[in-house]
Write a protein that binds this DNA or RNA. Structure first.
Lengths: 253, 253
DNA sequence: CGTAAGCATTCCACTATAAGGAAGTCAATA
DNA sequence: TATTGACTTCCTTATAGTGGAATGCTTACG
């Protein structure tokens, strides 16, 4: 069934609502860039007029899905999204199933252990047990990133659909060799070293259900020299063992 | 300006959109109860017809704000909420400011340290550093709760607005004495002991900005006998000290 | 096996709503 | 003080969104 172009010039598949699409577009735009953005800028990027965007934002604000900075009048995402997300995660079987393993994994690897999920082209870190290294002064607590920038994101991205390689190349801004892409798809674990000041290495393994469908990712992160000392393979084995334990437990969902 | 009753019999304040209200109502309903709920049930509780709810859910599904369980056809919250929430939290100044303190607080208190925020009548735990007790087999990883059930929730709730006592009583299903309510509002810290099998005690302190506005809560949780041994006051002092350090740093936002 | 029930989904007609143009308001700046 | 940019409100209009009716699908039961 073909998409229909509404008066907005934006596609609205039949049986869906243009107003919901508009709101979703605004939430998406607000999720990129600074915490608060000007209404007129949002209007331009959404392809809508300022009064339309004003009404949409005002409606979203009414339910705390969006908030307005009183000083600058600019708009940003709202706290109700945090509550809805918490409700969603509190019911996610894969997270409940992984929960008893995380502290033990941290204890044996001495690294920061996280659970990651793929949402669109983003990787989101949905649970975490902090490692034992250091004082936590420079604790990296980013919850979302572009998927292909992280080991966990690459593991999930490569397994999401067979033909995501082109998309991954666009996101990275460079070519991915056939060999490297195959490694992302099939290697029991992947490893990335941050190219920022943190010198953090991340090791990630897929967590699959009994049908072989990848649900989430388990990852361990620590300083690169610490990982070199313990050995990537050793840490990966701990993660793989936990993932294997769960395989029979997790139904598709 | 008075609310206007639309054809739905639901209030839509002027200048806001009924369709957004409907979607927000559905997201709210989906955040309560089981992970997946029947469409006809949602329709009844929202006061909308099944075709309307179907179109709304189909639209929300298109943007991953909602998902449909392929086996039961029932609807649930979607993963895009997790990504949006992560984006929101990654830009929250209070969280960034608190981040360097959390591991140190855990180290000195030996308890699980968390940061909590109030969203409506819910308390949501938005960051966490796990304590050093035990194997983590029975790790309590709930991210959202009814505010008045937890120490952090009570601290935030009592400071949210002057006249929330009645609402708190409704939520608890019992009366709150003037003395107890005043304690929630003004005590430097609050303490609750879970009445479930976990025997976990939580100690919570407010984190305020330079204007005295309560942004979030810092809490420490551990087994009740562990807390008794270390002393509530001692643990609370550690939290209060961290909260004080931040007071000058955090602008109103 | 046929029937009924429950639930999700689609079709169609109608009208109330959502969109945009114009105008108003407010704060910052030259 | 006038101008500019951004947000907000008002009003008109076209169509999108709603609900009633019908259809499709799955499961349970006699």
């Amino acid at each position: 069934m073909e998409n229909v172009t509404g008066r907005l010039g934006l596609d609205t598949p039949p049986g869906t609502l243009g107003t919901i699409r508009n709101a979703a577009v605004l939430l998406h735009l607000l999720s990129e860039g600074p915490a608060y953005q000007p209404l007129t800028d949002l209007a331009e990027r959404a392809g809508l007029t300022a009064p339309t965007v004003h009404r949409l934002l005002r409606s979203l604000k009414q339910f705390n899905l969006v908030e307005q900075d009183p000083r600058s009048s600019r708009y940003g995402l709202g706290p109700e999204l945090v509550r809805l997300s918490a409700c969603y995660l509190d019911r996610l079987p894969a997270l409940s199933a992984l929960n008893p393993y995380l502290v033990q994994l941290r204890n044996v690897t001495k690294a920061t252990v996280q659970v990651a999920a793929l949402v669109g082209t983003s990787v989101v870190y949905v649970d975490r047990v902090d490692g034992e290294d250091g004082s936590g002064l420079f604790r990296d607590r980013r919850r979302a990133d572009i998927a292909v920038r992280t080991a966990a994101g690459r593991v999930l991205f490569a397994r999401a659909a067979p033909s995501m390689r082109g998309e991954a190349e666009r996101m990275l801004g460079l070519s991915i060799s056939e060999e490297e892409w195959q490694q992302w798809e099939t290697s029991p674990y992947l490893c990335t070293r941050a190219d920022d000041h943190t010198s953090i290495t991340e090791i990630a393994v897929p967590v699959e259900d009994s049908a072989g469908y990848t649900l989430v990712c388990l990852s361990a992160s620590a300083a690169s020299d610490f990982i070199a000392q313990e050995g990537e393979d050793t840490i990966a084995q701990h993660l793989l063992r936990a993932a294997s334990s769960l395989r029979g437990v997790l139904g598709h969902g």
